[in-house]
């Protein structure tokens, strides 16, 4: 896993939350918001007990945690009701947990200066389109972009620090279409395809995203003229930190990133 590889370099020690549940990715939330908040309150209470913040590498999971925290920290009645259900399992959510996406941690905790020092293979000449994913952006009052509007440009900043050049395209903040892949495949792929095409037209060699949902979505869009590889943020960091494409499992990508890297003689 790319994240495990880069964590050491970033000075992060990863501790698995044993027994933690899936965040529900918004799907469980739509079936039963109370249950979803309860499951996530349990995960947050586990982290609280360890005295550790939760790190996410998925925009969707981050959005779900941000939403749960927003409600639990703001609404004492709701929190009490959730805690009541957690009580006989031995958990209480106290209101001190923190959940942060790797992207935020990179800029806000580790810092771009430190990140720059870690780059051993600058991605010079590489043009990278940044795609954020819905849940890390909206609603702005839940995910903290109201207080920190600069979060809307973190991905570009990171791309630049890694030596690459960010490419702007209209779909940057839009939806990749993944959640409706099974309900309306045509619409879903149209969304993914529009972003890939737009980014390609503006000269991007690859796309980077903090949301891993976009990768499986993007590979299903099979237009031979638009072969734009999509990298998960930890993979792009891994490249700049000197890991081989194989170590980062980039050799397994359906739309290969290797030609772009070879062209820039980034391959090792």
């Amino acid at each position: 896993m790319a994240m495990e590889k880069i964590a050491g370099k970033l000075g992060l020690e990863l501790v698995g939350l044993e027994g933690a549940a899936c965040t529900g990715a918004g799907v469980l939330q739509e079936r039963d918001p109370g249950l979803a908040d309860t499951l996530n309150a349990r995960t947050l209470a586990m982290a609280e007990r360890l005295g550790l913040p939760v790190l996410t590498i998925c925009s969707t999971c981050q959005g779900v945690f941000s939403g749960t925290l927003y409600r639990l920290n703001r609404d004492p009645v709701w929190r009490a009701r959730i805690n009541e259900k957690l009580a006989d399992l031995g958990y209480t959510y106290k209101g001190t947990a923190r959940a942060a996406h790797l992207l935020w941690v990179l800029v806000e905790d580790i810092g771009l200066d430190r990140l720059r020092e870690l780059v051993v293979r600058p991605l010079r000449g590489l043009k990278v389109a940044a795609f954020y994913g819905c849940y890390i952006l909206r609603p702005s009052w839940v995910v903290g972009t109201d207080e920190k509007p600069e979060r809307l440009k973190y991905l570009e900043k990171v791309v630049r620090v890694l030596g690459a050049e960010p490419v702007e395209f209209p779909g940057e903040y839009k939806c990749c279409g993944f959640p409706i892949l099974t309900t309306n495949r045509r619409n879903s792929l149209m969304m993914a395809g529009t972003h890939l095409t737009d980014a390609r037209r503006r000269g991007a060699d690859l796309m980077v995203t903090p949301c891993p949902l976009y990768q499986p979505e993007a590979v299903k869009y099979r237009d031979p003229n638009v072969r734009l590889p999509v990298l998960h943020l930890p993979q792009l960091l891994g490249l700049a930190f000197g890991f081989s494409p194989k170590e980062l499992r980039l050799d397994r990508h359906v739309v290969s990133v290797l030609p772009a890297l070879e062209r820039l003689s980034l391959k090792v």
């Binding site: 939760v54 790190l55 996410t56």
Partner: peptide, 8 residues
């Protein structure tokens, strides 16, 4: 692989 723990 969505959730991972961050530690100091």
């Amino acid at each position: 692989t969505a959730v991972r723990m961050l530690v100091r």
